[in-house]
Nucleic acid binder design. Structure first.
Lengths: 165, 165
DNA sequence: TCGAGCGGTTGTGAAGTGCAACCACCATCT
DNA sequence: AGATGGTGGTTGCACTTCACAACCGCTCGA
């Protein structure tokens, strides 16, 4: 049953796929930062990932079915897209962000997003996932009329910043 | 603002604390497996952690405020206890387990726990966290009369195993 | 033809991992 | 008293991975 020396426990499988210093951060920048291209991920990262590490993680994520790569030819902008597996990580990001915000020292400005995801709850996560499906998989949202999560995040952020300290 | 070359983003802070191959697995065995001692963690692990790695992770987790160590003297059983920070990881485990169960290949028997946590939802997580606070922090549960989560997990497990395939 | 931007690759040294052997200490049994 | 097994680790070594900087070929637009 063991495939690479470890077990079939769901938590272990998640750790095998995501448990290193960079994989989750790359996915975070794609999910929340909207980055789709190599240089965007390389230069836009708050944490300063090295190019070889980024290339390796992108390759592994494609291998593992968590990204697809649209090869536009050499010297052209290749586009990375989320898959259903990586879109399904939104609740994981929300849980990790909530925990990090409460139990680690964080930068206030960067912690707002985690707070908004926590306040919005599973309903907001579901809407955000629908929005990601539209952007990355070309699947139309169930209710395109309602405001996008990015808009709702912006509105909620304004509300948070306006509230009394 | 950077402390070790990375950012103050809550997700990054969580990855810094938990993002390696073993830390979350050690905590999982303490949280869900009830293991409190070095040899229990060493021999009871499904994944077969090495003793030097386990010692290093336990030391780091104590440093990071995610475990406390009750030193009973040399040659005697030292006991590791969860802290509020590590008890607060229960929703993270639930999210990771749900994701791993749906999007990775898992062993059926080991996936049952993730399913139960998913079905039980935040209310079950909260009860489980109260139970962990009682066991590890000596804090009395708010409502000791209700059945423990371990009992409820066992009951739900029986229900799952009895349902039609 | 030239420079800027594209997605990477290649070295190199440092750090982490995995395995087995080994250690001092303690409690118990004989 | 001596032997045995359990406690929480430590040490040495080979191997792999990580991280940093420099570099590469390609394409597009001026």
């Amino acid at each position: 049953m063991r495939q690479d020396g470890r077990s079939g426990c769901p938590i272990n499988r998640a750790v095998e796929a995501l448990g290193d210093h960079w994989t989750l951060l790359v996915l975070r920048d794609i999910v929340f930062g909207g980055r789709r291209h190599f240089r965007e991920l390389l230069n836009g990262s708050q944490e300063g990932i090295a190019s070889n590490i980024l290339a390796d993680r992108l390759r592994r994520l494609v291998e593992d079915g968590m990204l697809t790569r649209d090869d536009a030819g050499r010297g052209r902008r290749a586009t990375y897209s989320l898959t259903e597996s990586s879109i399904a990580l939104v609740p994981v990001f929300a849980a990790l962000g909530s925990w990090g915000r409460r139990h680690r020292e964080t930068t206030e400005a960067l912690a707002v997003r985690a707070e908004l995801l926590e306040v919005g709850g599973p309903a907001l996560w579901a809407d955000f996932m629908d929005e990601l499906r539209e952007q990355h998989l070309g699947v139309a949202r169930p209710d395109p009329g309602r405001p996008s999560v990015r808009e709702r995040l912006a509105a909620a952020r304004a509300e948070v910043e306006a509230r009394p300290a």
